[in-house]
């Protein structure tokens, strides 16, 4: 494994399977009365969050604490960043404090990559702009594998705002590595220009894709980023690309519904679909802690690696 986890493309098939298998063993820890392992004692993990996030930050914090690492939470609001400190100076401060790993979320695509040049510790990308969110892709793959078994040849459909979604990009890359066949379904206005080079199929017709999907992953409509007329109205979007009970009925019986959260109930996903037993949305949160434990263990648990790849 490489020293950093910045892109899902950094992971070879063996790396990805190692993370998933490690997570499978670590899942037991969450069911014990003592939910703690001594493995990362004396290591420091910094959560560096320049964008708002509850779920991901808490998930990383819980994962680090269950491995006995010391956790320092650093959010941009009310910190030196709001006084105008640059990313580089923040990085040098963390470096001076001896951070063994930095978990970073940043609004700018590529920020974790820059940070890796300034800090000696491992960098874990917790979402950068519209670029990537590799641990989300890992927990999604883990949730799928727990429900459906190995992912080779499984058909995964990702529906919605691919343009603004770092989750979609990381998922496409990781799922392709794991041998799944991915289809993106979105209005043409919500697909990035580069999508033609991604290892996946494109479709504009949700109803045609549903009957042959093993997994349907709904993406959040990012209202805060809807500054242009990407689609005529919320209702029209919901009618063409939302997952309601009728569409759920057209999916194969074994197929599962996923959503990275937070959901807009009634918009991209109907409430009854989100709460159905075929939805993995709550499991995804539990699995998030487990997969992040696996990532932190594999990055920090062994000897420090010299240089980049090993």
């Amino acid at each position: 494994m490489k020293r950093h986890l910045i892109s899902a493309a950094d992971l070879s098939r063996d790396d990805a399977l190692l993370i998933l298998d490690t997570a499978e063993e670590l899942a037991q820890v969450s069911q014990r009365s003592i939910k703690k392992l001594p493995t990362l004692r004396g290591r420091t993990v910094v959560n560096l969050f320049f964008e708002d996030s509850t779920r991901t930050r808490i998930s990383f914090e819980a994962a680090a604490k269950r491995l006995s690492a010391d956790v320092i939470n650093f959010s941009a609001k009310g910190s030196s960043v709001s006084k105008g400190e640059s990313l580089k100076d923040t990085a040098l401060t963390l470096q001076a404090m001896g951070a063994d790993a930095v978990v970073i979320r940043h609004g700018a695509s590529g920020a974790p990559h820059r940070l890796a040049e300034w800090v000696d510790g491992s960098i874990v990308n917790a979402g950068d702009g519209t670029h990537e969110h590799p641990t989300q892709a890992l927990l999604d793959a883990f949730s799928m594998r727990r429900r459906l078994g190995p992912l080779d040849g499984r058909r995964v459909t990702i529906v919605g705002d691919v343009l603004h979604s770092r989750v979609a990009r990381s998922n496409v890359l990781l799922l392709a590595t794991l041998g799944a066949e991915v289809t993106l379904v979105a209005p043409p206005t919500l697909l990035p220009v580069s999508v033609g080079s991604w290892p996946c199929e494109i479709s504009y017709d949700l109803d045609a894709v549903l009957p042959k999907s093993d997994v349907v992953m709904m993406l959040r409509v990012q209202r805060e980023r809807m500054n242009a007329a990407f689609f005529p109205s919320a209702r029209e979007y919901s009618r063409r690309y939302g997952l309601d009970r009728d569409r759920l009925g057209r999916m194969p019986d074994h197929a599962v519904v996923m959503h990275p959260g937070p959901m807009n109930r009634g918009m991209e996903i109907a409430a009854e679909v989100a709460d159905s037993p075929r939805s993995t949305i709550v499991e995804q949160v539990t699995n998030g802690v487990t997969i992040r434990m696996a990532v932190l263990y594999l990055l920090l648990g062994g000897a420090e690696l010299e240089g980049g790849a090993q």
Binding site: M1, L18, D21, T22, E25, L26, T39, Y297, L298, L299, L300, G301, G302, A303, E304, L305, Q310
Partner: peptide, 9 residues
């Protein structure tokens, strides 16, 4: 643990 790269569980 710190003498070798992280090992599988």
């Amino acid at each position: 643990l710190r003498l070798r790269p992280a090992r599988p569980l």
